[in-house]
Design a protein around this nucleic acid. Sequence first.
DNA 1: CTAGATGATTGACTTTTATCAATTGGTTTG
DNA 2: CAAACCAATTGATAAAAGTCAATCATCTAG
Lengths: 232, 232
Amino acid sequence: MPDSEYRDIRKLDLFAQMADDNFTSLMRGAYVQNFPAQIELITEGEPSDFLHIVVSGSVDLFSTWNGRETSMATVRPISTFILAATIKDAPYLMSARTLEKSRIALIPSQDVRAIFDSDSNFARAIVTELAQCYRSVIKAQKDLKLRTSLERLANYLLRQQRQTGGGAAFELDFEKRRLASVLGMTPENLSRAFKGLQPYGVTVTGTRISIDNQADLERFAKPNPLIDDFST
Amino acid sequence: MPDSEYRDIRKLDLFAQMADDNFTSLMRGAYVQNFPAQIELITEGEPSDFLHIVVSGSVDLFSTWNGRETSMATVRPISTFILAATIKDAPYLMSARTLEKSRIALIPSQDVRAIFDSDSNFARAIVTELAQCYRSVIKAQKDLKLRTSLERLANYLLRQQRQTGGGAAFELDFEKRRLASVLGMTPENLSRAFKGLQPYGVTVTGTRISIDNQADLERFAKPNPLIDDFST
DNA sequence: CTAGATGATTGACTTTTATCAATTGGTTTG
DNA sequence: CAAACCAATTGATAAAAGTCAATCATCTAG
């Protein structure tokens, strides 16, 4: 693993406070691999052999049932995924596939569990990370249960706007079909939902979104930190 | 706090492995209180001052937005709730109200955080608990995004059946209006959904459910451990 | 026991969302 | 360049779910 990557991973909240020895030992057992786009990295139901870290590129976490599929989350650098399965030594609940050419670090789950047992700083970091993940899913759940698809889209746009710096115009960070899946609707419906937001001053040109009337959109979307603020 | 309750709490996975001193010190700062039914114990958005433990009775975790309300989960004895908020020292994401007369233990959040820092067995238990909670919400999320309301109800009934021992007939464990909310539908819709399951051999009499054709219902519901098995 | 309250159900209707089919528009590739 | 492909959009329709109002059933308080 190149030194710069090693240092980047070390800087992750999850690893930042742990003992040097333990980090080194974790990394000794780790692979780093380049994957092309659209490769299925893990499949739900399989045992969790590795904790994964997205070093570059991006990864889609998705689930299937009865021939249907839904996108649960997108993982972007630099962060980990399937920490809970690793810790519990339980089967993956979600599958993962690369969205683009990606570089992924794989740390054997049993190493993670072993060092978790011996390094209390690492254990604490894991707690914080898991609590964060838990709260994120709860927010997603509230979004899904309390809002219509139009409201979900409106709030998604406002979040995306904030995340890209707050300007009136910004780019969607993934293709619309997957945005639809993330938001829990069909692509056709997303198309119509974008139209439905026109009266509130939303203009769409390809992947470019322009919010022409911030106040109107916010009045409609009613964003709420207990749903939309991913940092707390 | 009566001795028997003290011992029951001590037996919880979360506290079972921690040092005696630390447990005693946690409990010294704790209150135990009896609440009547329908009392709002915590309100979403408030700072998380206490980790709560349901000693007896039951508690509904729910959320609201824009005048709408949805039931997120039910907590039954003996377990804790809002652990993630306590650990992160972040605002509650859900409100909680007693469903019936309930006995609740309240442990000051700062005590939990302090002992979490010093007792690594406790920290480990918290990790396991959080990972469990996280995976439960992911399952709920999959249930919601991948299934229609009829399928959710069918699978709920099968889960409930298993949980009550597996017999063909069993009781619903809460009122239908709240079941509807948990399943993400309106009470009217739940009524119709029960009718919709009649062709698969489901009979409803008040809160009593009878599954007359197990195979048929399962063929329709297609239960999946990665969604419906809450133990992994 | 009865009146009142509350939850459950039903019917009629509307809204929301999904499905299917066809078209558009851009991109890739032989 | 043209064919092939694929995501996105659009229109027509169907299915799912929500809303509103009325009624029914159950339970409880006086």
